Amino acid sequence: MSKRILISIPIVLIIIGLIYFNLPFEVTRKTDIEFGNKLVERIEAFKKEKGQLPTPNDWMALEELGFKTEMLGTDPTYEKINENEFELIYLEGFDGPYLLYNSRQKHWKIDFPTIPDRWK
């Protein structure tokens, strides 16, 4: 009886792991997406009020919008692509693809960030 339990526990854990890693990112990253959607609403309201998007290095404005500031930037990373478009990027590790939201496409996806116009 105890041998069956000892053998079945790792098998059950492996099955649970396989199920979890095959779930869509909308399920596994739900809290990140919900927080990001709140930030998107606040950024759009900022744009309506001020007539422009906040700049990525305006820490005061980004904190007021609700971004979590960290030593190397914000979480998620905010990037202004051009005067009308921005991206929110959840950076994890050094190489992508990352979870990101593009304001032109208006949906979350797993992809590589867009190069901002000011870098071209």
Rank of each mutant, 00 (worst) to 15 (best):
V40S: 01
H107R: 14
S8H: 12
S2T: 14
D95N: 09
K109P: 11
G66T: 05
D75G: 10
K106F: 08
E79F: 02
K68L: 14
I16W: 14
L99N: 03
T69A: 05
G73M: 15
I11K: 10
N82S: 15
R118Y: 11
E83P: 08
E85Q: 12
E34R: 07
P56S: 03
N102P: 00
T28Q: 04
T114H: 09
S8A: 09
Y98M: 12
S2N: 09
P113Q: 03
W108G: 05
V40A: 00
K109S: 15
K38P: 00
T74I: 04
D95H: 05
P116S: 00
E63D: 04
E87D: 14
F112H: 03
R42S: 15
L91F: 00
K68C: 07
Y20V: 00
W59A: 08
Q105E: 13
N22Q: 06
I7A: 13
E70I: 10
W119Y: 12
A61M: 02
P97R: 00
L88W: 12
L91W: 01
E64R: 00
T114Q: 09
I5F: 14
K30F: 11
L62K: 06
F94T: 02
F94A: 00
P56M: 03
N102Q: 10
W59F: 08
D58M: 09
D58H: 04
F112M: 04
I19P: 01
Y20K: 08
V12T: 12
L100P: 08
F46Q: 07
I43Y: 02
I43T: 04
G96M: 04
K109D: 13
G17N: 13
D75N: 15
I110Y: 05
I33D: 06
E83F: 03
R104N: 11
L53K: 11
L39Y: 01
G51P: 03
G17F: 12
E49W: 07
E41V: 15
A61K: 02
P10K: 10
E92P: 00
M1A: 08
L13V: 14
E64F: 10
W108L: 14
I81Q: 05
H107G: 06
L65C: 14
D95L: 12
W59P: 01
K106Q: 09
F25Y: 07
I9N: 10
E26N: 14
W119M: 14
R42F: 09
W59L: 14
V40F: 05
P116L: 01
L6E: 15
A61V: 10
F25C: 02
E83K: 10
I14S: 10
E85H: 12
R104C: 05
Y101F: 13
L53G: 11
D58I: 11
E26A: 10
I16P: 00
